[in-house]
Design a protein around this nucleic acid. Sequence first.
DNA 1: ATTAATGTTCAGAA
DNA 2: TTTCTGAACATTAA
Length: 282
Amino acid sequence: MPELPEVETMRRGVAAVVGSRIDDVVRPRCRLRPIQIEPGLAQLRRQVVGRQIAAVERVGKRVVLRLHDQSRLVLEPRMTGLVLISQPPDTEHLRLGLALSGGPAAELWYWDRRGLGQVRWLSEDCFRERYLSGRLGPDALEISADTLRKRLRASRRAIKVALLDQQVLAGVGNLYASEILHLARLHPARRANSLTLAEWQDLHTALRRVLEDAVRYEGSTLSDGTYRNALNQAGSYQNHHQVYDREGEPCRRCRSGAIVRQVQAQRATFFCPRCQPRRPGR
DNA sequence: ATTAATGTTCAGAA
DNA sequence: TTTCTGAACATTAA
């Protein structure tokens, strides 16, 4: 489930296509329902073919190809999407390909098992309006502790749920929210407006630490094996998970408590009741 | 063989 | 205004 660390790993993995020219856009024959492409395949082709890739960026959980005319091709993996410049896991779920020239890779693929992801081309103005102004909060790797606190201190929502709100900060998803709260020793059901100044500091420190470590280990490839980097290799941060998908197993920090699974906002949350007490513990 | 669960985003309801 | 719910899908585990 590509969250910030996985998408950042994809971005780095395809950064080598900067300078390449897009020669064609192809949709492989696929018996599955086509993914959403805006503004349609023909229009998209008209807009990008012949253009050069000026940069590969990330905005929240999306990979963004900036073209020379400053328009953007946005790849949004959602649940099971991958951006690859090597052989994909299978050809069955290839959704879109870019034929490239003038660089190290001859093609860039968007692959998506469930097909919930989207690809869209946007002019510079539309891109700015849609992705850089208000609809998304500051990037989770760049937000300051003070900004994080200011954005959430009045909210009555559970802190776990609030961390998932991309309008608050962009990049944290379900897996990393649990890991971050465990490192910060915060109970996931704590209301955001109940956190002390020190707890906001702890949360921010944990946020940085978990996301940076996860990027270093190239993201988490869970037991279903879906997530791969741009070269179709698995990440390894799953080996460092403290709570995610570890229900009933002993907490690696306090060694005694068993990890609990709880549902919040229809999503699974994992935590250690002993390390993460409901009452402020300090 | 059904059914539930998976996690992200968005539209629309409460 | 803020928060919550369900739908969009393919695949797998129960």
